Simulated scan of single mutants.
Amino acid sequence: MRSKEQGFTFIEVLAVLSIIAIASLGTLVLRDWAVGNARVSEAKNLITTLQAGAQMWKPASGEFTGISMTELSSIGAVPADWGDGIGKNPWGGDIMIGPDTVDATKYIIRLTNVGSAEEGQRLVRDYTSVSALTSYADGDFTVTFQG
């Protein structure tokens, strides 16, 4: 009588490892997508807060000359821990707000060090219809609003 050997064949082991690898890859792609969405959502919340703060700060003249992160922070129009805006955006870059140099009735918000061109372009697409101007170049997202 021959004894029957028990165990897995090399092909069976390879099949299981392949399934695990594909599942892991799918999970990583999904994680990257979710993290990107979270960063874009957080950036949009920052911009919304800055818009509200700019309206609180705006003087009766309607001009935004002198607006800055420090000014908004000093009047409580943005969270105090935003301070000068350094390192405060979701990508670890800066948040800046200032007057448009061409038209003082407009203000510019800039997020620096946006690490993903896809996420930067998504912000451009999301703000194109509600702003005077949007752009993304070299890791900087810039949006101009009419006061």
Rank of each mutant, 00 (worst) to 15 (best):
V130K: 09
V16E: 11
Q146Y: 06
L14T: 06
V130P: 06
L72H: 02
F10V: 14
G92Q: 04
V102T: 15
N37M: 05
A52K: 10
E5V: 10
L17N: 15
Y107C: 00
Q6G: 07
W91F: 09
G139W: 01
D138H: 04
L25Y: 07
I108S: 04
L25S: 11
S74Q: 14
T70S: 15
G87M: 06
S24I: 05
S68N: 10
V124L: 01
Q6F: 11
W91E: 10
G92P: 06
G120Q: 01
V29L: 14
V40F: 06
I109M: 13
T105F: 00
G87H: 06
Y127T: 02
T48C: 07
G26W: 06
K4Q: 07
G85D: 02
F8D: 09
I22G: 11
I19E: 05
T70I: 05
I75F: 11
L17Q: 12
V143I: 05
T27F: 15
K44Q: 15
D126V: 02
M96I: 02
G115F: 07
W82A: 05
D94A: 06
R110A: 09
S129V: 01
D140H: 03
A117E: 08
G26E: 10
M96F: 10
L111T: 01
L14S: 12
D100G: 01
G139S: 10
G53L: 02
V78F: 05
S74H: 08
I47E: 06
S41G: 15
P79Y: 14
A104C: 10
R110Q: 13
S135M: 04
E71V: 11
K4A: 11
T105W: 00
E42R: 09
F141I: 01
S73Y: 10
E119H: 10
F145N: 00
G83E: 07
E63Q: 00
V124D: 01
T101K: 08
R122W: 06
A104L: 05
M96T: 05
S61H: 05
R110F: 09
D126E: 15
I109R: 03
K44H: 11
